[in-house]
């Protein structure tokens, strides 16, 4: 009976489905996504009511909104990347292992046995999916509210070229991917911090603090040598995706940087978690 059962081939993705269901079944997750969707709505309503700022003031793309509602997406992303997205990543990544430890479910997952490496991989994958969903929500909510309140038409890119609505969708998706990619490093840092404690709120706070610290280091001229290594260094680099032709160099640099952070903090998380005594 059970001896036969253990001979069956492994189902490596069964847990990922369960993990995503766990994340997206929580009211907390939907509350965070709803809060992120409010950001473009707030921006669009504010611009509509006040008639828009004089050109050149406020966050990037703000002035373009009155001409084309689709720019609400881009403005909202600019506003969200330094603070709101790191906050939500902090919650999801910080909770990943520490939350299970706090509930006591970690010992039952490990006794199932889930495999410690596999659990970490699935947790990181769910962080990536959440990041993608969060970025997507901002861009989609932005496009929807923009289209509702402002005229929509061909989008004029930073390079002066004009693209149609179809190509706008492609660029919007690229921005979602860029935003997801940009926060992978922070996600790995959060996952590592989450293996250190059984108090999820502590891991969440520490991850958000890490996001703030990286941006401060990145802003201090005295620490210029460190700037290229901060995971936040390319957070605002997506302007290059709004040129014709697309300049991919920023995307590549960012991917390499994030990969580095994921490798280093992923390895730290593996080293810590695979040897840890689970006493919670």
């Amino acid at each position: 009976m059970s001896a036969v059962e253990t001979q069956r081939p492994a189902r490596p993705f069964a847990l990922l489905g369960s993990e995503l269901a766990l994340v997206f079944r929580r009211r907390r997750t939907w509350a965070m996504l709803a809060a992120l969707a409010l950001i473009p709505i707030l921006i669009a309503v504010a611009v509509r009511v006040t008639g828009g700022p004089p050109s050149g003031r406020g966050p990037a793309f703000l002035a373009s909104i009155t001409e084309n509602g689709l720019f609400v997406s881009f403005t909202a992303l600019v506003v969200s990347i330094p603070l709101f997205l790191p906050l939500t990543v902090g919650v999801v990544a910080g909770d990943s292992i520490a939350g299970e430890a706090n509930l006591g479910t970690l010992r039952y997952l490990l006794a199932a046995p889930v495999g410690r490496l596999r659990l970490l991989a699935v947790k990181f994958a769910s962080i990536v999916v959440f990041l993608f969903a969060a970025s997507l929500v901002i861009v989609v909510a932005g496009a929807a509210i923009g289209a509702a309140l402002f005229p929509v038409g061909p989008v004029t890119l930073l390079s002066g070229d004009t693209i149609g609505t179809g190509e706008y969708l492609g660029r919007a998706l690229l921005l979602v991917l860029y935003s997801t990619l940009s926060l992978l490093g922070l996600g790995a840092v959060g996952l590592f911090i989450s293996t250190l404690t059984t108090v999820p709120i502590g891991a969440m706070a520490a991850t958000v603090v890490a996001a703030g610290a990286a941006q401060i280091v990145d802003a201090l001229p005295q620490l210029e040598a460190l700037h290229p290594f901060m995971f936040s260094h390319h957070w605002f680099g997506f302007g290059d995706l709004l040129r014709q032709p697309i300049d991919w160099s920023g995307f590549q640099d960012n991917a390499l940087l994030q990969l580095g952070w994921v490798v280093v903090f992923g390895a730290l998380a593996v080293g810590r978690f695979t040897t840890k005594d689970v006493l919670s």
Binding site: E5, T6, R8, A10, R11, P12, A14, L15, G17, S18, A21, L22, T105, Y108, L109, A112, P113, V114, G115, R118, L119
Partner: peptide
Amino acid sequence: LHRLDAADPRSDP
């Protein structure tokens, strides 16, 4: 229970 059972890759969904 579904979640905990899914944790083991050998358990039959």
